[in-house]
Design a protein around this nucleic acid. Structure first.
Length: 138
DNA sequence: GCCAACGTTGGC
DNA sequence: GCCAACGTTGGC
């Protein structure tokens, strides 16, 4: 299974709103970047990902699951981009801040550290396990 | 609020 | 098809 990281500004779409969306989840729309699109297209139902708050908070706060694979984003007038549907799985017992991620040698190659502007990022198996542990999950 | 990094646009 | 100009993102 692949793992991902989704960035969102809490003012635009927060973890709390994702949780409130419930089991049915919501579409993760608004991606307008080809590399991010590539990642969206690679996602499969059941893939898990981190939900990251950018700007305000700057921390991984929760875990989400892909519940619908890539389909066209109707809010994209050019018709070039698509989206997936996500649902909230669980909140992290302890959010993992960007500072903590940067301070962790095992995470120095995370995309979040090296290409912080990419809004949808792949996360390796090792990074996934390490961030989970830092968050207080087994 | 500043600015570096990056992607996109459009003139040539 | 190159590249300068511009807009956006996001950490600081």
């Amino acid at each position: 299974m692949a793992h991902w990281l989704y960035k969102s500004e809490p003012e635009a779409w927060s973890w709390e709103q994702q949780v409130a969306a419930g089991e049915g989840g919501t579409c993760w729309n608004g991606v307008r970047n080809h590399l991010a699109k590539k990642h969206l297209m690679a996602m499969q139902v059941g893939d898990l990902g981190f939900f990251y708050h950018s700007n305000e908070g700057k921390a991984v706060v929760g875990i989400v699951e892909v519940i619908r694979p890539y389909y066209p984003d109707h809010t994209d007038e050019t018709g070039r981009f698509g989206m997936v549907d996500l649902r909230a799985v669980e909140a992290l017992p302890r959010p993992v801040s960007l500072d903590a991620i940067k301070a962790e040698p095992g995470l120095k190659d995370m995309v979040l550290v090296n290409n912080s502007r990419l809004s949808v990022q792949p996360v390796t198996q090792a990074e996934w396990a390490l961030v989970r542990r830092m968050a207080g999950l087994t």
